[in-house]
Amino acid sequence: MSEHPRGTLRVTVDKETGVAVVVLHRPERLNAIDLTMVAELRENWRQFRFDDAVRAVVLTGAGERAFSTGIDRDAVVPQPSSPYMQDDPLLAVGPKANDLWKPVVAAVAGMACGGAFYLLGESEFVVADTTAAFFDPHTAYGMVSAYESVLMAQRMPYGEVARMVLMGNAERMGAQRAYEIGLVSELVEPGRAVEAAVRCASVLAGYPAAAVQGTVRALWAAGEAGRAQGWAQAPHLVALGNLPGERQAELFAGRGRGEPRIR
Score class of each variant (00 low, 15 high):
Arg10Gln: 13
Gly121Tyr: 04
Gly245Met: 02
Gly114Arg: 00
Gln79Asp: 07
Gly70Met: 02
Asn242Met: 09
Thr69Asn: 05
Ala209Leu: 01
Thr12Tyr: 03
Ala107Asn: 09
Ala107Arg: 04
Ala56Cys: 00
Thr131Arg: 04
Val161Arg: 04
Tyr179His: 14
Ala222His: 15
Val184Thr: 08
Gln213Tyr: 10
Leu204Asp: 05
Leu35Arg: 12
Glu224Gln: 12
Ala225Thr: 11
Arg263Asn: 13
Asn98Lys: 07
Glu224Ala: 15
Pro89Leu: 01
Val22Cys: 04
Ser123Leu: 12
Ser68Ala: 02
Gly182Ala: 09
Pro157Met: 08
Leu166Trp: 04
Ala106Leu: 06
Ala146Gly: 00
Gly223Arg: 09
Asp87Phe: 15
Val105Tyr: 11
Arg65Leu: 12
His25Gly: 05
Glu16Thr: 14
Val57Asp: 10
Gly258Trp: 13
Glu148Lys: 03
Leu219Arg: 08
Cys200Pro: 05
Arg263Ala: 14
Met143Glu: 09
Ala109Ile: 03
Pro157Cys: 10
Leu90Trp: 00
Arg261Pro: 07
Val23Asp: 00
Glu148Leu: 08
Leu219His: 08
Thr36Gln: 15
Ser81Thr: 10
Met156Glu: 08
Ala146Trp: 06
Tyr179Trp: 09
Pro137Asn: 12
Ala249Lys: 10
Arg227Ala: 05
Arg192Gly: 01
Leu120Ser: 06
Tyr147Val: 08
Ser185Asp: 10
Val93Gly: 02
Asp99Gly: 07
Arg26Cys: 07
Ile71His: 06
Val104Arg: 02
Gly94Ala: 06
Leu237Pro: 04
Phe125Ile: 05
Thr139Arg: 15
Glu148Val: 02
Ala132Met: 05
Phe50Leu: 15
Asp51Trp: 04
Arg6Ser: 15
Glu160Gln: 14
Ser185Gly: 13
Gly254Arg: 14
Arg29Trp: 06
Val104Gly: 05
Ala239Cys: 09
Ala162Ile: 15
Glu64Arg: 14
Arg263Trp: 15
Ala20Leu: 03
Glu148Met: 07
Met167Trp: 13
Met111Ala: 13
Asp51Thr: 01
Met164Glu: 08
Ala218Pro: 14
Val198Gly: 05
Leu151Lys: 05
Thr139Lys: 08
Ser185His: 13
Ala162Lys: 14
Arg261Ala: 14
Thr215His: 09
Arg155Ala: 10
